[in-house]
Design a binder for these strands. Structure first.
Length: 441
RNA sequence: GUGGGCGUAGCUCAGCUGGUUAGAGCGCCAGGUUGUGGUCCUGGAUGUCGGGGGUUCGAAUCCCCUCGCUCACCCCA
């Protein structure tokens, strides 16, 4: 009789994390927490599920369409969070009286979006946000950018570039061209210039009711990325002449880059790119996204910007903010695509203790604990008294550095899997022996 | 949501214009080597050819439907 089984599978867009990716993920998260903390950010957390009315209508119609929304058993309309920024706005508005401002917090968690999965794009993915709430100066903007540059640098994932822009630049120009009532379609059209080219963008702008002359102005503005930020800034500075808001935007970009470079003690890995727009409707000033230089087609590994009005739907207090979102799942996917997911060396030495039917198991347990306490060792006791060769192969497959076998006469034999050499010692001397062997190599 | 590509062993894939028992490499298992891994040698197991229907003497191969995956658009991490 054949037993029928349920085919093991995951939902479209929902992925398992395998051990190789899991180790990398852990390392990325360690770097993030360390960097956030070193900038004074506090860890917070918000729920995965919120009232739908809290989440909907904040990030634009596209976000609403992609939101997982359902009814709970009590008949409430609820939704899975689409990002971590909108829940943060709710959090800050709700706990305003208990927080110290300017409030700096980070939040690491999964978010859910119902769009079609592709490489590096999932329906459930891990994101890590850091935000400063309560001030509108560009010092905060610069600090956020410094955090990204620092974190991405320490993650050791390869070269990256932060593409930076400021919404005030385009807003200013659009106002001068009397297009302020058509901002979203115009921004959408301009955002496509890399993909479809200036001519097609001009067509789309014409379709949005933009005159040919205005379209040329806009294309000149966004097509002005130069070899250096300074060159781009002066180029764009010329096109925004006459618009106070646009001039402010250019000045902010210039100053922010200067501040980040000062913080890093080196030129910031930032490229001023006036074509960066970003879809989320709530951004009001600085906007940016980071791409991995070796996988620019994989999409952004980080993004964010300034949003000065986000919390206004939950409170009458003015709570401007600026934040970054780092795509942990996306970074893992990029590393996987580059074949560098599992090249992370073990940060501690793995030791495997073997056993057989006659082993003194209390002695083995004591010894495992002693080795763990003796230094940077991860120690596992093979959990069954199977054939010794099997346990050796297991240790090898696991990448263990040392295989330990308790001999019948009570001495411990130590095999160094790297050199192939064997040594022995009394159990009490094993921790010291391992430290010596591991250190000497 | 719109449009393209692809579903053959655990994995990566080969199977020409339809033709007998469907293959390779890797992996896995066993032995060589009964308490000392990797290398090597020998042997072995495994497929509803994604599913359903149709054409045909005959379908992994052609047609239709369906499911799944994937890429592009859209949007973004």
């Amino acid at each position: 009789m054949k037993r029928t089984v349920i085919t093991p599978r995951t939902l479209r867009g929902f992925a398992d994390v395998m051990p190789s990716a899991g180790r990398r993920r852990r390392q990325l998260l360690e770097v993030l927490e360390e960097v956030y903390t070193s900038f004074g950010f506090e860890p917070i957390q918000t729920p995965a599920v919120e009232y739908a009315e809290i989440l909907k209508g904040k990030g634009g119609t596209e976000s609403d369409k992609q939101m997982f929304e359902f009814e709970d058993k009590g008949g409430r309309r609820v939704a899975l969070r689409f990002d971590l920024t909108v829940p943060l706005a709710r959090f800050v508005a709700q706990h305003e009286s208990e927080l110290t401002f300017p409030f700096r917090a980070y939040n690491i968690g999964y978010v859910w979006r119902g769009d079609r999965p592709q490489r590096g794009r999932y329906r459930e993915f891990l994101q890590s946000d850091a935000d400063i709430i309560g001030v509108s100066g560009i010092t905060a903007d610069a600090e956020i950018l410094t955090i990204i540059a620092t974190a991405l640098g320490r993650m050791d994932i390869g070269p990256f570039t932060i593409r930076l822009n400021n919404r005030k630049i385009l807003n200013g120009v659009l106002t001068r061209l009397e297009l302020q009532d058509r901002v979203p379609p115009v921004l959408r059209a301009l955002d496509k210039v890399d993909k479809i080219g200036p001519a097609a963008v001009a067509d789309e702008l014409a379709g949005a009711g933009v005159t040919a002359a205005a379209a040329q102005d806009l294309l000149a503005l966004i097509g002005s990325v130069q070899a250096s930020n300074e060159a781009t800034l002066s180029h764009v500075g010329a096109s925004v002449k006459g618009s106070a808001e646009g001039e402010t935007g250019v000045a902010e970009v210039r100053e922010v880059i200067e501040l980040v470079s000062a913080a890093l003690g080196a030129p910031a890995p930032i490229r001023f790119d006036p074509s960066i727009v970003r879809g989320l409707d709530y951004y009001t000033g600085m906007v940016f996204e980071a791409v991995h230089d070796e996988a620019p087609g994989a999409g952004s590994i980080s993004g964010g910007g300034r949003y000065d009005d986000l919390a206004s739907v939950y409170t009458t207090s003015r709570l401007p903010g600026v934040g970054v979102s780092i795509g942990v799942s996306r970074i893992l996917s990029v590393l996987d695509g580059l074949g560098r997911l599992s090249d992370l060396p073990r940060d501690r030495t793995l030791v495997v203790l073997t056993q057989d039917l006659g082993s003194d198991r209390p002695e083995l347990m004591r010894l495992a604990a002693a080795i763990r306490g003796a230094g940077p060792f991860d120690v596992e006791l093979y959990p069954a008294a199977v054939k010794h060769a099997t346990q050796m192969k297991y240790g090898d497959a696991r990448g263990a550095r040392f295989l330990l076998t308790l001999d019948a006469d009570g001495t411990m034999s130590v095999k160094d899997m790297e050199s192939g050499e064997r040594a022995s010692a009394a159990p009490a001397g094993v921790p010291a022996l391992l430290s010596k062997l591991a250190g000497g190599a």
